[in-house]
């Protein structure tokens, strides 16, 4: 993916705003930001962002491409949509954050071990297997995302939680074996594959 990164950086040179507008989900709304800061103040995890959305938008204008894309800020988005509904300028902040995060992933510049990025990918991979999420496998894969040792530790730590859920009938060991899947998984796979191709073409086109 770093080829794409080089290509995009070369193409848009200093104009990161244009790059964002071209390839990031809802990126065309970024230019409307007037730096009021309501998004930054509205974010429930705001204090954990090295660069809150309003600052990211200013950094985009200032051409701080690497600083933005390599930041873990946008991975802090909980998708609560507080910022979007309060934004006076219609900037699609939540989506832009998702878009930037995804773009960073595509470019391969996400900070190593970024937990939300990992979970996000695991989730997607999980649902891609059979069209529906297998919560048990997803949970386990998250425990084990940092390796076997950590996984056991995590699993032990959350044993009680898991037991409780099973007791309540809200987690089933059966999931591990069979689990919910859709019937027309083949058709589903074809559909998403095609969508992925179109998505890829967008980036390839933009890089040219």
């Amino acid at each position: 993916m770093s080829d794409l990164n080089t290509a995009m950086a070369a193409k848009y040179r200093a104009n990161f705003l244009k790059e964002v507008e071209a390839v990031v989900e809802e990126g065309e709304t970024v230019k409307m930001c007037m730096q009021c800061g309501v998004c930054a103040g509205s974010c429930p995890l705001g204090k954990h962002w090295a660069h809150p959305p309003q600052e990211i938008f200013m950094m985009i204008r200032a051409g701080k491409r690497d600083e933005v894309l390599k930041s873990d800020s946008m991975w802090m988005c909980t998708s609560c949509y507080n910022c979007i509904v309060r934004c006076p300028r219609g900037v699609q902040i939540t989506h832009v954050m998702h878009g930037l995060a995804y773009y960073a992933k595509r470019l391969g510049v996400v900070p190593e071990g970024q937990p939300t990025q990992q979970v996000s990918q695991l989730f997607w991979d999980n649902l891609m297997k059979g069209g529906r999420v297998n919560e048990l496998k997803l949970g386990l894969s998250i425990y084990f995302k940092d390796g076997f040792g950590d996984g056991i530790k995590n699993a032990m730590a959350n044993q009680k939680l898991g037991m409780n859920m099973m007791k309540a009938g809200r987690m089933s060991p059966m999931e591990f074996l069979s689990g919910h899947t859709i019937k027309d998984n083949a058709g589903f796979q074809k559909i998403i594959k095609k969508a992925q191709e179109i998505e890829d073409a967008k980036f390839d086109g933009a890089a040219k």
């Binding site: 730096q35 009021c36 800061g37 309501v38 930054a40 103040g41 509205s42 705001g46 204090k47 660069h51 809150p52 309003q54 600052e55 309060r86 006076p88």
Partner: peptide, 28 residues
Amino acid sequence: KSKVASIVENRENQSPILHGVDTEGYNR
């Protein structure tokens, strides 16, 4: 320089508490 994000009320004394970020340098 900040558009205040939200106000909550201090239940003890009914004083409004303003939440937001000072955009000049980003101070919550």
